[in-house]
Design a protein around this nucleic acid. Structure first.
Lengths: 150, 150
DNA sequence: CTATAAGCCGTGGATCTGCCGGTACCTTTG
DNA sequence: CAAAGGTACCGGCAGATCCACGGCTTATAG
């Protein structure tokens, strides 16, 4: 049960994070391994939980959710239950991080319009005080971790 | 050039966001379509830019980056160049959003340890004033957009 | 030196993908 | 009204891909 990742593992991770549908033969070619050896490496990474899944990325604007915002939620009580219910119901909430500091939660939300955002923030405001920042642009869209000396 | 997504398109998006490596035949089974019809739908979504790519998700803790944090950066001048350089060099920075409000940028960073985080924040602090919040847990890990009445 | 384990390779059968023609339905147009 | 064109779907086939198998090489320990 080798806990450490070698350079080949990092190369594999870089490739599958860039293109999650790359064929194993092509992946093997890029990391200088045979197809079957590549398969074993990938399976091991999946089994160890290093690779947690494969997901398609969707353009938010193209599906009618052009308004992206970061909402910080300050939350006096401890009725987390209500927040969980909102996370379940409200598909506009894309991500929710629980953090240290004055604001307990940091949410990323995507809405169809400003009134739509306003309505969502109103809903969140019933749980605690909110601070909202509209996102101009994703200067750096999410990227996964890289290994040393890429 | 139909701009609107129908229920089948949303079902496809839900499936490929959940599992980006699902075979087209299985995908067709789930959305009640033949394999070839499914292929055409997916190709169209890709060509239209609705699906922007497929990516493997990696467990940050498992690759030695267990400390996740949100850093907000307040930035008096306009030397964005220096920030871009940092984004390029510093693999610990996973995401960077430019927002309205007092803090110009909101970054998501992952580091190996607290000293490592401290060093990264010091680096960022040379550009402007920073506010850092450690992430306890991802209450809701990133999920993509969902269609109406899932 | 031998035994064991780990990592890699090549092969072959099962599966999936990509491309083809064909059908049904709707809209447009003469 | 009828013909033409467009759209979305299906089925089938050739080729590419995936996956499990056994054999080969190297490293380590006894």
């Amino acid at each position: 049960m080798t806990e450490i990742l070698d350079a080949t593992d990092w190369a594999i991770l870089a490739e599958v994070q860039r293109d999650g549908r790359i064929p194993l033969t092509e992946l093997g070619r890029r990391v200088n391994l045979s197809a079957s050896a590549t398969t074993e490496r990938v399976k091991r990474l999946e089994a160890a939980g290093v690779i947690t899944g494969y997901h398609a990325a969707v353009d938010l604007a193209k599906v009618g959710l052009p308004v992206l915002a970061v909402v910080r939620l300050k939350y006096p009580g401890s009725q987390h239950q209500q927040l969980y219910r909102l996370l379940d119901e409200r598909f506009e909430i894309l991500e929710c991080l629980r953090t240290t500091g004055d604001d307990c939660y940091t949410l990323k939300v995507a809405t169809a319009s400003m009134p739509h955002l306003e309505q969502l923030v109103n809903e969140l405001g019933r749980l605690g005080s909110t601070t909202t920042n509209i996102v101009y642009s994703q200067t750096l869209p999410y990227r996964g971790p890289r290994g040393p000396r890429t």
